[in-house]
Design a protein around this nucleic acid. Sequence first.
DNA 1: TTGAAAGCGTTACCAG
DNA 2: CTGGTAACGCTTTCAA
Lengths: 352, 352
Amino acid sequence: MAERRSVRRSSRGGDNVTVQDLADAAGVSIASVSRALNNSVKVSDDVRRRVRDAADRLGYVPHAAARALASQSTHTIGAVVPTLENPNFAIGVEALQKRLTQAGYTLFVASCGYDMDQERQQVETLVTRGVDGIMLVGALHSTGLNDFLRSRNIPFVDTWVMSGDPRVPSVGFDNMAAAIQMTDFLLDLGHKNFGVIAGVTKSNDRAIARVKGIRKALKARGLPLKQERLIERPYRIVDGQLAMRALMTEKNRPTAVICGNDVLAFGAMLECQRQGIKIPGEVSIVGFDDLDFASQLVPPLTTINVPADKIGEAAADYLLAAIENRPNLLAPQISVNLIVRGSTAPPPDRPT
Amino acid sequence: MAERRSVRRSSRGGDNVTVQDLADAAGVSIASVSRALNNSVKVSDDVRRRVRDAADRLGYVPHAAARALASQSTHTIGAVVPTLENPNFAIGVEALQKRLTQAGYTLFVASCGYDMDQERQQVETLVTRGVDGIMLVGALHSTGLNDFLRSRNIPFVDTWVMSGDPRVPSVGFDNMAAAIQMTDFLLDLGHKNFGVIAGVTKSNDRAIARVKGIRKALKARGLPLKQERLIERPYRIVDGQLAMRALMTEKNRPTAVICGNDVLAFGAMLECQRQGIKIPGEVSIVGFDDLDFASQLVPPLTTINVPADKIGEAAADYLLAAIENRPNLLAPQISVNLIVRGSTAPPPDRPT
DNA sequence: TTGAAAGCGTTACCAG
DNA sequence: CTGGTAACGCTTTCAA
């Protein structure tokens, strides 16, 4: 038994304290040490105390890999988001992580740059890592991804969307409905001449759904969305600016511009400020997300509030419940709200 | 041998394919399978091919925990940042992750909310996880953190700072020097009346160093920084606004306001816009970080460019090198630059 | 180049 | 309640 230690291959300096060491120090079996450490019920207070003491004294640090191997559970969760540069996802991941930490889980984070193949790649890596659950963004994944995860019995949850399919748990909201609500709001204000600055719709079902919603709402009032009035751009300020510039060079300027998110809207507003175009006097601008700056802009931005932190927390709760086989709370629906602020008003009195 | 499988405790559905299975399928020993899978040189092409085929056919997914346990290396890195809500850190983490993925490493992310105790907690969790390296932000940690990591032989790197101590590897820059440069710039412009909106300095050595730099530069010109001219606030837009409001209510308004970062500066600018205070006509405002919106604001913000992505990449490179015992590249120094834009100008002609 | 076998640090089952 | 011990899935000597 003493031999055990000397045989170690360990190259690391700080000869790690093992359960075996604690057992020796506390004068109990390693089985008892394990039980004591894991708050198992079947341990006498005495043993528990002695083990805890030894652990503190020797500076014991559990070995997660060994634990995972033996228990078949890593207490680890993975998240794959398009990019952390979008504050929305950063906030969501942050909230997810906080919740997981509370529950004793650790989070792997990976980004895929809005690319389904990369997402698949990252997911496979996470599976190799033995994650107990995975958070994904959107419902649009590489073919077979869902089945792959299901076949391996790994709980996962789509976020920022609301899937119709009950087999696919999701924590989010109906992007199309939100876009419709926003468009209807502008329509009710009297706007008839629209411009849209959307996010890149490739591999992005949130962006797709939002454009679809806008189209649908307009169509319902007999207003088609002309090709040149729909500009698709990455979610960056400068792209919002350029898109707005393009939109405003037309002879028949739109009186309302719907942006795929607040970042794009911010860019659009800056362009107006630069050109001296009055908001909302000449053009109404709306965003999506309600990032912290939205309410502070001049004028403050009308947008859809998306509680990214709530999404992250709910995703954590769902995953944790699924992992522990708790009666699965119905995938919580996140409510998003139209926040009307100063960037919108009825269209100016001129023939459109 | 057949017995082995039936004894499994595995509760999971998707009976995972093991090295043993591949060995059976390929008709070789598990040792050979391991070698074939790990690109070991000592394998015949034939064996390699057969193993690879079997792996593909059976859908083999390696088991990281087992691999870690056997090889004493997890191919895992941990990062602890104050918060992902600060775009700077989000960008840094994103870059770190990308680089690590390329190298076959997976990233654990944790945030500590600018709290050293939480940071310590997170680090210990990561150590339990067996991470091969850790990225930290700042050089100010809970007492003994560095020794703890060193004693366990875990490479770590401080970021966003430049440590004097060569025993503490860091990837960053000299915050104080940058602040001095910025202050000198304003001083050279003719400003004598300063206001400072700093980040919360508790547990934040970047914020501390920046304030120190400002103080030092002012002092060198015989200008003290009065208590009421230094406002410390969390890094949020609204805090920048409120702080600016407080600064501008004084009878003797500052002609230059130095902000701890761009977010605070943005808030300060918004407040001026709201009050109709001209920038830079009446007051010059500067930030720190050069976030993407800085160059787009009206007027564009004078600030210090901090390449967060470079920091993340360099941190990854350093950690990887340290882990693989490669001749440690000297901790790379990140160069930050003063970016002069429209938010700064000489002070107005009035007695200050 | 290949195979056999000894671990890696824990957990969990089974007796006692 | 406690101890002994067989896994967990893989890597890595050590011989052949």
